[in-house]
Amino acid sequence: MSQSPLVQLEGVGVRYAPRSPQVLADATLALAPGERLAVIGESGSGKSTLGLAIAGLLPQGSIVTGHLAWPALGDRPRPGRDIGFVYQDPSGSLDPVMRVGDQVAEVVAVHSAMAPDVTPLEQAVNLLGRVELPYPARTARAYPHQLSGGQRQRVALALAMAGRPKLLIADEATSALDPIVQARMVALIGRLCDDDGLALVFVTHDIALAATLGSRLAVVYAGRIVEAGPRSRVLGAPRHPYTRALMAAQLGIERPRGGRLPTIEGQPPDPATPPPGCRFAPRCALAVSACSAAQPPWRGAFDDGAACLFAPGNPA
């Protein structure tokens, strides 16, 4: 990587309280300015924790180990200003008794993120237009309860963009929406990132969405990144059995319309008592006894490899 990365994680681990189980272990990745990373995992896999850890929004009392650096910023990131965050629940993240335009304008004003001769509210209306809300000037005067779920999520996106951040983190930002709205929302996020040269961390359980948005993918299982790499390589030649299982489950079979995503046999392990060695071993078709002896080493480059004994490449 020629450019200095925007954010760099090295062996990051997270616990939510001193003696609670580690929900994220040994996460290593880097993200260049303008780059788009999709983080894929089942619910409870630690993918959301990864997003929150990057954003610095873990709940109070959480314990973070390892290194997290922002070389391109040269400083700690300021929430809202350097990082825009979109939560999963579009309704919950808006103040119910404030007009949405005022909410956006508030964030614009706090970060002084408007053009010289534009008021924060005008800038807010511009932003509502950019997230493709109809009649932005009128929508600005609406209260959250007067908007649909999709519209509220667009407002949340505008709020995340209002501080002109360099990185957008979307945590399952579209999974509460119905498929058509979801597709348009994903396309919008992609366009916005292109226009502003924004880096993106898109956290999702849906490998198809991840493939649409991410130029690079990271697959998370039971608190560990098990595979990472460029989209074409990961989808074209997946190296980790879990990635392959996910793709078979979600992409291989004809997907029932509107139905739930098919899943892999078995259950993800309880984070309190992870299996020894490779955490995927109990569900893995290729597992051998060596898999459970020790955590399989990362094979390949740190940004293009997998954590499986049988993955090609040298142990990192």
């Binding site: 929430p79 809202g80 508030e106 964030v107 706090v110």
Partner: peptide, 16 residues
């Protein structure tokens, strides 16, 4: 509630 958390994520100052 979520929006209080979200307000922090948007960088609004505590007093605000």
């Amino acid at each position: 509630q979520d929006f209080a958390r979200a307000a922090f994520a948007r960088g609004l100052p505590h007093r605000h």
